[in-house]
């Protein structure tokens, strides 16, 4: 497997990265962990004219607790998320998703921001980001903007970055009260993308009612999808088995999967239903615990 030829540079500062992207125009692409881009190039599904490698930029690998949210820099690897105390203590859904992204060696290299930027509907992170209502910090040589994740994810492998912009950071809000979350992924083996996965997150108010809810689905639509109706059904309610079942039903209605080698559409919807319920049960236990 031999990728096509391209031009390459590996700047050492964000400014240089942005300047190079601006100068190279449409043919240029950011190379982060390369764990999606390089396989695509090897299969000749992608042939960028120019790669701007950001791996030599120092100071981008942070995972920081900044009042109110956790900031994850463009070079924080999946492995860093797995090992992060900040994540472990602030976001259950992220902590439960991280070990199931790809395989241990791929996690040593691939980045969360790269994954978010890639917008693969079978990718795990964007569902977790949706459930957590994350924000994406986009930067270009002309400035910075903060994009809610719902607006960032446009379609199948399409984000809302403008030419010349990079994802500099992703911001994950912290729970305002007690919270919990889970990422349940049905994969066929380690290293497999999700057949179906559900990210769920809830926060409880002082009365034990659900104050906020986030539910998002992987691999059952042309992009990672928020199950809004399920979320709406939960907010303001007291958690119960029946409520979670209802949320599962509503979530499964937000799934529009295709029948393929991994399974039938009916079954995938059923898994969404079951995983939503189970995820919420776990989230509740954490929020109460």
């Amino acid at each position: 497997m031999f990728p096509p030829a391209f031009e390459y540079s590996a700047p050492t500062s964000v400014e240089e990265v942005l300047a190079t992207l601006a100068a190279e125009g449409d043919g240029a692409r950011v190379l982060a962990g390369g764990q999606s881009l390089i396989p695509m190039m090897k299969l000749r599904l992608a042939s960028p004219a120019y790669l701007v490698d950001i791996n030599n930029v120092s100071g981008l690998d942070y995972i920081e607790d900044v009042n109110g949210h956790v900031a994850i820099g463009a070079l924080a690897r999946h492995r860093d998320i797995v090992n992060s105390d900040v994540i472990a203590s602030t976001n259950h859904a992220m902590a439960s998703a991280a070990p199931w992204v790809a395989d241990p060696i791929v996690r040593n290299r691939g980045t969360l921001c790269g994954s978010v930027a890639h917008c693969d509907p079978e990718g795990d992170w964007n569902s977790v980001m949706l459930a957590a209502r994350a924000q994406v910090v986009a930067q270009s040589s002309t400035g910075e903007r903060v994009i809610p994740i719902d607006d960032f994810i446009v379609d199948f492998f399409t984000n809302s970055l403008q030419p010349g912009e990079i994802v500099k950071e992703v911001r994950v809000p912290k729970y305002s009260g007690s919270g919990g979350g889970a990422y349940l992924k049905l994969e066929r083996k380690i290293g497999d993308y999700a057949t179906v996965a559900v990210a769920s997150q809830i926060e409880l108010d002082g009365d034990g009612k659900i104050a906020k809810a986030g539910i998002a689905l992987t691999a059952v639509n042309n992009k990672n999808t928020r199950a809004s109706a399920a979320e709406d059904a939960l907010v303001g309610e007291t958690p119960s088995d029946e409520l979670f079942r209802e949320a599962g039903d509503l979530a499964s209605q937000a799934a529009n999967p295709e029948t393929n080698v991994r399974g039938t559409a009916d079954w995938k919807r059923e898994v969404v239903r079951v995983y939503t319920r189970r995820g919420l049960e776990t989230a509740l236990a954490q929020a109460q615990g």
Binding site: D103, R188, K189, I190, G191, D192, Y193, V261
Partner: peptide, 26 residues
């Protein structure tokens, strides 16, 4: 998990280790 199948046009499904699944230690 391990099988190779074809669609009606004879396209092979299971043409890489992403689809033709060799179990891991896990």
């Amino acid at each position: 998990n391990q099988f190779i199948t074809f669609d009606d046009d004879g396209n092979c499904i299971g043409s890489s280790f992403m689809d033709y699944l060799v179990p891991t230690a896990w």
